[in-house]
């Protein structure tokens, strides 16, 4: 186990950012800390980096007791949401910073920086200033800078949060490939469940300063530990007593069947390849997502009377019997 976090608590004034959190983050993997804003995930990352100090608890990085270690002695690479580029230094000097601090010989620095710039595809920008780069390029530079010191762990705090949707998606794929190439233990913070599901080997869901669930993307999606995780990881809707994913529901037009609920189609929205159908039953509005082909074969339109049921092949993992308390709140 690479990073051990044991009983960590952190308060900011009266606000409890982390409440007795313990996690083991495995070596060599890409782990996501996922959760809503203000849930404590960035605080946890900053505590691992030594940029914040935990009120109580212990941190161990690759067997090294790091609880009271200054950030510069932890050998972690940290990437900030807003790049934290050294504005007065060229791209090359930015990447070389950690090596210059370590007083490595000049030729070695030069060679290593060239390798890293090639890795992040910034060779031709080496002599530019950060202000002359785009957001995505700056973040790649920040990554190269963090990797230059050969950190034991690489920590990324909402690394793509400040970028536009298209660049974010490109960088996401790129980060995954980079990780497979470099293989350094990586932890990244995100509030975007799609990002976490797509990139991470393992996801730690954090909410209200507590850990809700730890698992692989599949485990989290198929077997959410509670309603919060289910709701946070993807769209949900309610059918009777069940909390289900809209794509695990199907619409039947030929009347009844086991566990089918009758209703009227009140809204149809088409987004790209999927069609979202709102069916109003006696006491609920149920959202059903269909493929376009399926939708066309049904031939329904607004106002049609239909039945909704859980896809039979969905198996045991689909849907959650929700507790009475949750029904009231939703």
């Amino acid at each position: 186990m690479s990073i051990e976090i044991v009983n960590v608590t952190k308060r900011f004034g009266g606000f409890v950012a982390l409440d007795d959190v313990s996690v083991s983050i495995p070596s060599g993997q890409l782990t996501a800390l996922l959760g809503p804003s203000g849930g404590g995930k960035s605080t946890l990352l900053r505590i691992i980096a030594g940029l914040e100090h935990a009120d109580t608890g212990r941190i161990e990085i690759e067997g090294l007791e790091a609880t009271d270690l200054a950030p510069q002695k932890r050998n972690v690479g940290f990437v900030f949401q807003h790049y934290a580029a050294f504005k007065h230094l060229s791209v090359r000097r930015n990447v070389a910073f950690g090596l210059e601090i370590r007083r490595r010989p000049k030729p070695e620095i030069r060679k290593r920086v060239d390798e890293l710039l090639e890795l992040v595809h910034l060779e031709q920008f080496a002599d530019r200033l950060p202000s002359q780069l785009s957001g995505g390029q700056r973040q790649r530079m920040a990554l190269a800078r963090a990797l230059a010191v050969e950190p034991t762990v690489l920590l990324l705090d909402e690394p793509f949060g400040a970028l536009d949707a298209k660049v974010r998606k490109e960088l996401r794929d790129w980060l995954r490939r980079l990780h497979d190439e470099v293989n350094v233990t990586t932890v990244f913070v995100t509030h975007d469940q799609e990002e976490a599901l797509e990139v991470a080997d393992e996801i730690v869901v954090i909410n209200d300063g507590r850990i809700e669930q730890i698992g692989t993307p599949d485990q989290l999606y198929d077997e959410p530990a509670n309603d919060f995780v289910m709701r946070f990881l993807g769209p949900v809707t309610q059918l009777g007593e069940h909390l289900v994913r809209p794509h695990d529901l199907e619409i039947v037009t030929d009347g009844s069947g086991a566990a089918a609920v009758a209703g009227r189609v009140t809204r149809i929205v088409r987004v790209g390849f999927e069609v979202r159908v709102e069916v109003t039953t006696e006491d609920q509005v149920v959202l059903v997502t269909l493929t376009r082909a399926k939708f066309l074969s049904l031939g329904i339109e607004t106002g049609a009377t239909v039945s909704v049921r859980i896809v039979p092949s969905g198996g045991a993992g689909v849907g959650r019997q929700i507790r009475a308390a949750t029904v009231q709140t939703s």
Binding site: G50, L51, Q72, N75, F78, F97, G98, A146
Partner: peptide, 13 residues
Amino acid sequence: DEQEQAARSLGAN
């Protein structure tokens, strides 16, 4: 203070 924090995490005192 982000640039300063970045420098610290890169090993600068």
